[in-house]
């Protein structure tokens, strides 16, 4: 009886080598059945049983590894036209592309320490700066607006809202019209200040450009432009 059990386990142990020799589809092996057999064929001698079981389990893991490799090879073998993928990515909105990648990222973790030297520099810097309360006010912004501005937190939610705004309200129009008058566009919305912030943010990250016609003084929103750029204040009424 024990010999028969040993024989069964030995067959499992030799399986990866046999697969290597003969080749073929590793999915022809029923892994669940192998695990059941290992469970059923435990030997009376505990030490011998553990030895055989561990070797058999190792063999099963090698079979699974072969199955994974087989899938990868099959994927690589698929003839996917690179141009098709490039075209797909060209059409894909940046946000969708970012989300697809983020789903497959497991980041490396680390905590940065502040060195003594950096700490000394920070203290020197702080001793030179004015406290917050003494900072001059921006001016030109009335109290209600100021409170509104303070309520907009530039967190991820804001970034996402801005991207969503770009996708839903700006992208198509920019694609068809090329340039949109800034003031006219902003006035279409009830939350004008918020939209102004979206525009400023989108221009900062390069999704759009805001240009001023030097002859008419009109401010326009356009598709991203290259070249030199500068930070300008746009009066808000």
């Amino acid at each position: 009886m024990t010999d028969k059990k040993e024989e069964e386990l030995r067959k499992i142990i030799e399986l990866p080598e046999a697969l290597k020799r003969v080749g073929g589809d590793p999915f022809a092996v029923d892994v669940e059945d192998l695990l059941r057999k290992i469970n059923e064929n435990r030997l009376k001698d505990r030490v011998r049983s553990l030895k055989y079981e561990s070797e058999a389990l190792n063999a099963v893991s090698l079979v699974i590894e072969k199955q994974e490799q087989w899938v990868l090879d099959a994927l690589k073998g698929l003839k996917i036209d690179p141009e098709l993928i490039r075209e797909k990515m060209r059409e894909m909105p940046l946000r969708d592309l970012a989300m697809l990648l983020a789903r497959h990222v497991t980041p490396v973790l680390g905590i940065r320490r502040l060195s003594a030297e950096r700490l000394r520099m920070a203290m020197e810097y702080l001793s030179l700066t004015e406290p917050w309360g003494r900072k001059p006010k921006l001016g030109m912004v009335n109290k209600a607006q100021e409170e509104y501005v303070q309520s907009i937190t530039f967190d991820k939610k804001f970034e996402e809202e801005a991207m969503e705004f770009y996708e839903n309200s700006l992208r198509k129009e920019l694609e068809s019209a090329g340039r949109i008058p800034y003031r006219e566009f902003i006035n279409r919305f009830s939350e004008r200040l918020k939209v102004a912030f979206y525009i400023a943010y989108l221009a900062t990250i390069g999704m759009i450009s805001v240009v001023r016609n030097p002859l008419t003084g009109e401010t326009l929103i356009s598709r991203p432009l290259g070249g030199e750029f500068e930070s300008v204040a746009i009066p808000f009424e």
Binding site: M89, L94, R95, A98, L100, A102, V105, E160, M163, M207
Partner: peptide
Amino acid sequence: SRWLRIEEIASLG
């Protein structure tokens, strides 16, 4: 969001 900005992640992709 605590990793990279949207356009940076997309560019990496």
